[in-house]
Design a binder for these strands. Structure first.
Lengths: 149, 149
DNA sequence: TTTGAAATTGGCCAGAC
DNA sequence: GTCTGGCCAATTTCAAA
């Protein structure tokens, strides 16, 4: 799908603040709000906009610790192992990667004790993984939502 | 800040779809929309809700490749080095971590050629890093927005 | 244009003290 | 009895479709 500069301007505004009223989007890009409405519908239908999410501070809801977890997966057990990981509450993202690890998880936990439980009782117990390493996030220096536009 | 079950229900709905009208949120949690409005304002003011973002498909806007990049930082140059990383377009997240790396970046690029440029011309050239490793994301198996609620 | 949502106002009610 | 906080109804202003 081809995106023109108007589409990109709309995406930029909604990536920054997804609750911006279409009427204000229209004002800012100097178009009618009917046009904005049509274009947003099209961008949603085409899968360019996948959804809209409130950005919730994990600490405020009781998740004080985050980590990346690198895993090596045993040949032939990938799908089964991944399926079990998806069912673990603190596991928020599962990426298949090249390099030192086959899989990189992003996890959250209430505190370091709970992170240890997650790692040693839930993830390490999951069969199909041969090795793992946890990289606890001490702080996030910079974070942009989504791709550059 | 204390969150009750009503707050969590509101957060769950807006994390799932940030554009849900307050009137519908109200219907679903069986409260008035004025109450929903009050609570959402409070959650925003307290920093529980940090914002609302459209979730844009990176491929659709020309970013076909993502990667995690692990870096070792030389003592005493952290702040300076991080500052320069923040200025690089494809760098979307910068996390300070324990473990094998001091810093883990999340980056996006148009294609593998551009990723190579990013790595070898922009990041490796940045002074203050002694070692790096790139883990290209072959696919994302699972992804949940934000923490469990 | 009509239909509905956002945002504000004022007031009600319950529990704290 | 008053204060506080949470909730609702009504209104008006504005957006969605």
């Amino acid at each position: 799908m081809e995106l023109d500069e108007t589409d990109r301007a709309i995406l930029r505004i909604l990536q920054e603040d997804a609750r911006t009223p279409f009427s204000e989007v229209a004002r800012r890009i100097d178009m009618s709000s009917a046009t904005v409405h049509d274009r947003v519908s099209r961008l949603e239908d085409e899968g360019v906009i996948r959804g809209y999410h409130a950005d919730i501070d994990p600490k405020s809801v009781g998740y004080g610790v985050g980590a990346f977890v690198g895993l090596r997966v045993e040949q032939g057990r990938e799908e089964d192992a991944l399926e079990r990981l998806r069912g673990i509450d603190g596991v928020r993202e599962i990426h298949l990667t090249t390099g030192e690890w086959d899989v990189i998880l992003r996890v959250v936990a209430a505190d370091t004790d709970r992170l240890r439980e997650l790692m040693f009782e839930r993830i390490a117990e999951t069969e199909g993984f041969s090795r793992s390493q946890t990289m606890v996030i001490l702080g996030t220096d910079y974070e942009q939502p989504g791709p550059p536009l």
